[in-house]
């Protein structure tokens, strides 16, 4: 496996396939959560094509898995940016709960017998809040790291995270 990194860096696709197979589960979990499962397959492809492109710049300062993880987050954020700008034109409410909780709660009450499933509740979060929760509470990134990746203020990340937790707790309690 260690030999596969320099081989793939030199353009060996077979070596890259072995790296893909070793890491795809973790990257895929991240893709599914960030995209709420919608477009996760496309994102997964995008991420590994991007990893292939950037692999020569990998210097081994961190574990390959962590580095791949970071690339995945960046690819997701870049692809989301234009969409986020568009959403910013639309969302005018100062009370974020009015945008998200109805959707989350509505989903749960649609099926009252179903066990509340955290994965599905996360998937129902608004995109910004979801990204903050996934990256901070599941993946363990710092507020500052998330802010830097997203190009926003740390306070924005804290607010999104607070919003995500509040929405999820409401769902868990309902």
């Amino acid at each position: 496996m260690d030999d596969d990194i320099p081989r793939a860096q030199r353009g060996d696709l077979d070596a890259f396939e072995r790296l893909y197979r070793a890491h795809v589960g973790r990257v895929n979990a991240l893709c599914i959560r960030l995209t709420a499962g919608h477009g996760a397959e496309e994102l997964l492809q995008d991420v590994f094509v991007r990893i292939w492109e950037k692999l020569p710049s990998f210097r081994g300062e961190s574990a390959l898995g962590s580095w791949m993880h970071r690339v995945a987050v960046n690819v997701y954020l870049v692809s989301r940016r234009s969409e986020l700008r568009r959403e910013a034109r639309v969302v005018t409410s100062d009370e974020p709960e009015s945008l998200g909780v109805d959707a989350v709660r509505g989903y749960v009450t649609d099926d009252p017998d179903a066990r509340i499933d955290l994965e599905r509740a996360i998937a129902r979060l608004p995109a910004g809040a979801r990204a903050a929760f996934v990256l901070h509470d599941i993946e363990g990134y710092l507020h500052e790291e998330i802010a830097e990746m997203q190009g926003v203020a740390t306070g924005t990340v804290r607010a999104q995270l607070h919003r995500a937790r509040k929405l999820l707790i409401e769902v868990l309690e309902s």
Partner: peptide
């Protein structure tokens, strides 16, 4: 408690390989 790894529903590798080959997206420095 959420799983850290989730296998893709379908093997994404053939599509990834095809995209790399079709687009000639090469690692810089290769």
């Amino acid at each position: 408690d959420l799983p850290r790894e989730v296998a893709p529903a379908a093997d994404a590798w053939p599509a990834i390989r095809a995209r790399i080959e079709a687009a000639r997206v090469v690692p810089m420095g290769a």
